[in-house]
Design a protein around this nucleic acid. Structure first.
Lengths: 110, 110
DNA sequence: ATTGTATATCGTAAATATACGATTGATATT
DNA sequence: AATATCAATCGTATATTTACGATATACAAT
């Protein structure tokens, strides 16, 4: 790239694109599902389940934290992760809105 | 990377991740919205509206075609693009299912 | 036939993402 | 205090993505 042109698009478009990027890797989806399934997960449990090195899982967790899709708390030497349901709902709403609004734009659809 | 490990994740996870990747750039979202709004778009109209070079828009269109989110037909010297609503619905369903199922996994949520 | 127009493709540069091993830091155990 | 364990971070290699200009191709208009 010369330089990204993302700033030239509007906020909604960038927000949806950013949200999509967060879940655009199967590892991050698997991590989210695992944490949701267990209610809360220590990092080691996630590493055990995923076919990736510990450092790679840690990187993916960092991405999810940055997006605030999960929260992380230190429990002694371990790290415990939970889904941040508030953000999770926000993601869901943003995607749903995109799909619904885009369809509505086109009166002949469906 | 050494080599991607995506094959090691299951089909559903990879499908959702792939779908997310397609809409993980604001230009592609803007293109989809523009096509939906106009019902059908010739390439030039999209290029006019987007803050990107013609060749870059063409690349994004190719991505959307590859994902079958749009269809493209040649009309003389011009190219006309439409939303492929069938795939569009499939995307919507896949995202919705992910959000709903992940929430259901966690009985204490909401 | 020549010229113009629209768009896809090619080549390339640079940014970003993904993955891993090694290291670090912090706590827990002995 | 010494050692073990867990997880974050660093450094690095490589793959992928994004962007553009230049070029090629195909049709339209003159």
């Amino acid at each position: 790239m010369a330089a990204t042109r993302k700033e030239e698009f509007n906020k909604k478009e960038n927000e949806l694109a950013d949200f999509a990027r967060v879940i655009s890797h199967p590892a991050r989806i698997a991590i989210l599902k695992e944490i949701a399934r267990r209610e809360e997960c220590i990092c080691g449990e996630i590493v055990e389940v995923l076919p990736l090195a510990q450092s790679t899982v840690s990187q993916h967790l960092k991405e999810l934290l940055k997006a605030e899709l999960i929260t992380g708390t230190v429990d002694g030497v371990k790290s415990c992760y939970c889904i941040n349901w508030k953000t999770f709902e926000k993601f869901e709403k943003t995607f749903t809105e995109f799909f619904v609004r885009t369809k509505v734009q086109n009166p002949n659809c469906c």
